[in-house]
């Protein structure tokens, strides 16, 4: 069998057995997005679409603009001094930076989990889980159920079920991170942005979070920044590779199905990066 024949049969197999390249409608999409801090351009011409109920991993070396990009997706970027951008971010077909859009509503539908756990120190564990409801003015009656469900989803329930009234600060770093994931889930976002959510976690907690991500992706769209290649392979349907050359803004070098990015990348730089040859 020649190489060409082999490739043909691979393509045929893939078409037969794998999911189509585009699963359902696109929920969130960045179009020609460029981002600045003061006069420094940190991202240029990013075009990325996130299909509904899928997991997309953003990979790339430090300082290539992944975190900046993810923060533009729910309008947290604009809180930093000197922030500016061009292009648009479409959520359910409408630009979230449109003149009539309220960032508070956007952030309610597009939740976020940060790299460093940030539970509210003045609240109990239970209070932290429910804080999103309180802060966004949502009215829900089944508080106990929400607390239990979200903590189970975040893989924390068994560890804290007997001390829900304790201060969140007494949890370990990994537990705090799972607590803030539960907190983000309690407001039932449609999209969840995760900025290296597992960088402070031990392998067991990481695995729990990854299971949670897979489970959640049945109902919500997830965008996750990660430096852990195996994690991207394990959880993500799609992967986008970001890279910034020296003194140049970050760009998306390659994007596509995770299996493609890791198994058959088209760009030499992607190949080098996913094989750990730089970055």
């Amino acid at each position: 069998m020649s190489t060409a024949e082999f490739e043909q049969s691979v393509v045929a197999l893939e078409q037969e057995f794998s999911v189509p390249a585009q699963q359902g409608p696109v929920e969130l999409e960045a179009r020609d997005l460029s981002v600045w801090f003061n006069s420094r351009k940190v991202l240029e011409g990013v075009n990325l679409a996130f299909p509904k109920n899928t997991v997309t991993a953003l990979i790339g070396p430090s300082g290539c603009g992944k975190s900046t990009f993810i923060r533009t997706l729910n309008r947290l970027h604009e809180l930093l001094p000197g922030a500016a951008l061009a292009g648009e971010v479409l959520y359910e077909g409408e630009d979230i930076y449109g003149p009539t859009k309220d960032p508070v509503h956007i952030r309610l539908s597009i939740g976020m989990v940060f790299q460093k756990p940030n539970p509210f120190p003045s609240m109990t564990i239970r209070g932290n889980v429910l804080s999103g409801l309180k802060l966004s003015g949502m009215k829900r009656s089944n508080h106990d159920e929400i607390v239990e469900q979200t903590l189970i989803s975040a893989g924390l329930w068994n560890e804290v079920k007997d001390r829900l009234g304790h201060a969140a600060g007494e949890l370990s770093g990994g537990q705090q991170q799972r607590l803030v994931i539960a907190r983000a889930l309690a407001v039932q976002p449609h999209v969840l942005l995760m900025d290296e959510p597992c960088s402070a976690l031990d392998p067991a907690s990481t695995l729990k979070i990854e299971e949670t991500i897979r489970e959640l992706s049945k109902d919500i769209t997830i965008v996750i920044v990660t430096h852990n290649m195996q994690q991207a392979v394990r959880v993500a349907d799609y992967t986008a590779f970001f890279l910034a050359a020296e003194n140049e803004p970050g760009r998306v070098i390659e994007q596509g199905r995770t299996t493609e990015i890791f198994g058959n990348p088209q760009d030499q730089r992607t190949l080098d990066y996913v094989n750990g040859r730089f970055g």
Partner: peptide, 29 residues
């Protein structure tokens, strides 16, 4: 009060007023 807490509250769909009243001030009590 760390900025993480403010960003965290805003990311949950909080208004700035609620962020100050329910997160920042209690943290600085």
């Amino acid at each position: 009060v760390p900025d993480d807490l403010r960003t965290g509250a805003l990311a949950l769909g909080s208004t700035r007023a609620r962020t100050v009243l329910q997160v920042v001030l209690p943290a600085a009590k």
